[in-house]
Design a protein around this nucleic acid. Sequence first.
DNA 1: TTGTAAGCGTTATCAT
DNA 2: ATGATAACGCTTACAA
Lengths: 338, 338
Amino acid sequence: MVTIKQVAKRAGVSFKTVSRVVNNDPTVKPENREKILAAIEELGYQPNIAARMIRKKKSDVIGFISDEISTTPSSVDIIRGAQDMAWEKGKTLMVFNLNQKDANPAQLFDECTQHRAEGVIYGAMYHQAVELPETFSKLPTVMVNCFDPLQKYPAIVPDDRQAAYYITRQLLAKGYKRIAFLNLNPDIIAAKLRLAGFQQALTEHGLDESQAIVKTVEQVNDNEVIDVTREVTLDVLENFKPDAILCGKDLVAVRVYFVLESLKMKIGKDIGVASFDNWDVIPDILVPGLSTMSLPYYEMGRRAVQKIIQAAADKEKTQLESIEPERITCLLASRASF
Amino acid sequence: MVTIKQVAKRAGVSFKTVSRVVNNDPTVKPENREKILAAIEELGYQPNIAARMIRKKKSDVIGFISDEISTTPSSVDIIRGAQDMAWEKGKTLMVFNLNQKDANPAQLFDECTQHRAEGVIYGAMYHQAVELPETFSKLPTVMVNCFDPLQKYPAIVPDDRQAAYYITRQLLAKGYKRIAFLNLNPDIIAAKLRLAGFQQALTEHGLDESQAIVKTVEQVNDNEVIDVTREVTLDVLENFKPDAILCGKDLVAVRVYFVLESLKMKIGKDIGVASFDNWDVIPDILVPGLSTMSLPYYEMGRRAVQKIIQAAADKEKTQLESIEPERITCLLASRASF
DNA sequence: TTGTAAGCGTTATCAT
DNA sequence: ATGATAACGCTTACAA
């Protein structure tokens, strides 16, 4: 690889002057600058980041540890957001996946340390509580789509409560009066928060409990989750007769679409369907297109990088008080299903 | 950050001895080794990879440039495979996305050069021809899920022809006799290769053209792709009366399922459905589960890293002859749809 | 078995 | 405006 000294030789100056040009130091004679720039071009010189890093004691690297147990598109969007923001801020994102053979979080954290990352982002694939190994406290750490039960680290999560509240208000505003909420496994955080948001919206709108119904479409037996969307949907349609169905996620909505199709019910006319996720192309392949609350993964990724940069900047004030997770607002991706 | 010298001081030895322990040099007195290990533990010493890299003139970094125009789950799997293999080989994968603001391939390539990557993998989101900027020839480069028209670089692609051939043979073996192939936009590589594989399987099985039909479900108008799966499916069902439908991708199969549901046709009994992709959870949320040829993205990612390591090793022999892309075999993910 | 000295490619400091 | 010299944290080469 060509070094700064070779460029210097070629341009007939000292290597320090080349360094000045590379670092945009204005105190270089234009004439020399031209010569050096030409030499850089000819030799194809690229600065050695490692050497720079070692001297400047600054890596501009941010570690991203991704708990990729199940490969959902969400992971991609969080990482994309993080990478875009990192690029804009002149940082390099170093991504590590937890699903790798023999790799545990502490190991991946060490990898980040060895690269002298300025901070570490830990991302989970669905909104959950995660206990990080103690070692993470050695570097500024931000959690995305998850949070520490003791709130030891700043966290970025989707505002699931707001999402449910918003879409329910939206349904009510459009005149739907009997909403069936086919919620996810009640043990998961998102399900709890959304239930609260759903109920709040109903209450504020003056509806009582008889005018809505909440069912779960995921049965949990010994760590195995069984989907019972089909059965529950048929049951609810027959016994509760909703004018709208709010699904816990887009994949549930797909199943609901099938049930309604078989019953010859026209979605968007005979019955409204709404959902959560805005998952990849799913809402668009359905007919009619599914109106669904998008989970703000991309935005969360961007925000995480902002936070880590900020945290790295004011590293001196050690973070001791516990911190509420930052909830990112979800937006409605409106199509034609309600 | 704690350095090797601080550890040496603490352990009461020279810093060189610490270096020996860190690098598993056996020529260290066990007694000293213990002391040093203890000091490392106490101080939380982590070797500085940048410093090591600069001296060893070896980065163990592999760059991965991902053409992430559309965020498909495929990208995740290629990267996962690449990362797993990199981890196993003691390499670090540095991932860059092309969709970032103001970032072009040459820029990202420079980023790799600056990190002294030993090679670069360029990954595309669907099987296609890609012309890389000339600058890529400066480093060992491997293309995944895409290839150079002039075959200047080694490439890893799915064996689309084999995939279509295999699943068609499989359908025929199960007794299906009238197959409708709802192919993708005929301009894309996968569609062409699959058509060839499909026809070869039919021919070898002794079927003539009247016993099969091929239609495209994607209409292209001015760079806009319009999906006409619904219309084509209805047309084919009425006029050709197939006993099996082979879909160009899982998302097409979803639409076909809806049409069949509305017609009250029982998939797997009245008619068989097969497809390509094995895309994430799609085949499993459908009822019955969709039997589909999986695209071997994970495997392709692994292979790409293997190839780049090999290419970096025998860098001396400059690659001049053109190279056929390496086609990775696709496997059937068998469920209940045929 | 251990230590010393040099060097990797860069930036920081200070002198010219 | 430019350059000599030291320093960053590590490995290599060689000496003890």
